[in-house]
Design a protein around this nucleic acid. Structure first.
Lengths: 232, 232
DNA sequence: TAGATTGTTAATCGATTAACAATC
DNA sequence: TAGATTGTTAATCGATTAACAATC
């Protein structure tokens, strides 16, 4: 309930993970948990969990711990998952189609209301109940329908044009799968970037660095399945 | 060229971005750039760029700046993009299909050699030149073929079984789109997690928090397109 | 040479962990 | 009451920024 404190992105990015673990606990019929027990389960520190939660309020009880369903509800509310932000998706290629079909919008505060593409052979097809609209009609759509957020599943160049149109129509929230740097051009927008290619390159670095650290293991086909002692 | 220093993940996660900007500069025929100019372009600080690069070596020249193609090559090498890690993908649903079709593996150090699913109606179909194999043959495949990395595009439960098999076969590198916590069970693996649902919830939080900060703007359809003064 | 810009050290800022009084 | 565990402050650790001598 304490407001006004500035919440750091480090904390915010941990909230969905708390949400997931609490949901699982709840589904398993566990109604109470201490920061210590949760920390162990999540591979975090109890201190961090208490610190994080106390950014938003005192949800626990001394000597008892946290009430799981209550804490779950609190975190849902903090995340704002009860919203239904009206959302459109641009670019119905492989990635766009996967997002439409795969992502659970309703339970995460968003409602997918329309999807657009500029490829004539895709326009008019139906994906997960949504008819692909002509990207040429985007502006008209935005002016007649309320659009809270947009999902960009198109290449940087097209994304740039689309963002200009959307920004002009008042859209200020973007889930961005393109390499366009939206917040560089428009400072008053909320963006969340998903850069799959960057993620893969990061993995490549980690793998390569790891190999250099543990040489000699010229891993060939049939590797040993030595048993594992779970440490830490 | 300086080794042995421990590189922080904060630095590592910025490398792909440097890579992208340097590629663009190179493609635009720009052969020289100072940390100051690059910082401006990227929305970072010159200090950070110099600090980051110097984790790996002194790539610049006092009074001159950085040679763009040279620095690009250095970063490619640091990321290990010249590798061809043999990689398999598990789970050819919407997301898996998008990854197969959409991600550029070759140029990012990976080579997709096989894709698996357990759905009989999908097995045998061809996606981007790869025939979907029966997940039941996974272990045999791993024992006869070299597998450096695996991409998990399946639900948590199936992912758990698959990871056990793969770990047993010596696979130690995972690009993980599931909610399974691999490094919790196996501490000696390299993982990169992509949690789309978490990302969307983070966006929901940011949007909701932003709205609370700027109330009164009950954004309706035709929003003003007030011109933008790019600050900072 | 003078100007520019790096590499690197020192200062600041922020995030995580530890400690402990408050309290259920 | 005694034991447990929180909320919160203080200490530590790490990452970013600033400063500047080295040098091209």
């Amino acid at each position: 309930m304490s407001e006004n404190k500035k919440i750091s992105m480090s904390v915010v990015r941990r909230l969905p993970r708390y949400y997931r673990f609490l949901l699982e606990l709840k589904n398993n019929g566990i109604y109470r948990i201490s920061s210590k027990a949760l920390a162990e389960k999540m591979g975090a520190s109890a201190s961090q969990i208490r610190q994080d939660l106390n950014c938003f309020g005192g949800f626990g009880q001394q000597g008892y711990g946290y009430d799981v369903p209550k804490l779950f509800d609190e975190i849902s509310a903090i995340l704002g998952l009860d919203n239904q932000y009206r959302t459109i998706l641009l670019g119905v290629g492989n990635l766009g189609r996967a997002v439409v079909n795969h992502v659970g919008f309703q339970s995460r505060g968003f409602e997918l209301t329309a999807i657009f593409d500029n490829n004539p052979s895709i326009i008019g097809t139906v994906i997960n109940g949504l008819t692909v609209l002509d990207a040429g009609t985007l502006k008209d759509y935005c002016l007649s329908e309320k659009v809270d957020a947009a999902i960009l599943c198109l290449p940087k160049e097209s994304a740039e044009q689309v963002v200009d149109i959307l920004y002009g129509c008042g859209v200020r929230c973007f889930w961005n799968f393109s390499h366009l740097d939206i917040s560089m051009k428009y400072s008053d927008v909320v963006t969340e970037n998903v850069h799959l290619n960057d993620s893969l390159m990061t993995l490549c670095y980690c793998m390569t660095a790891d190999r250099e650290k543990h040489p000699g293991i010229t891993e060939t086909a049939s590797a040993p399945s030595r048993p594992q002692s779970s440490d830490k």
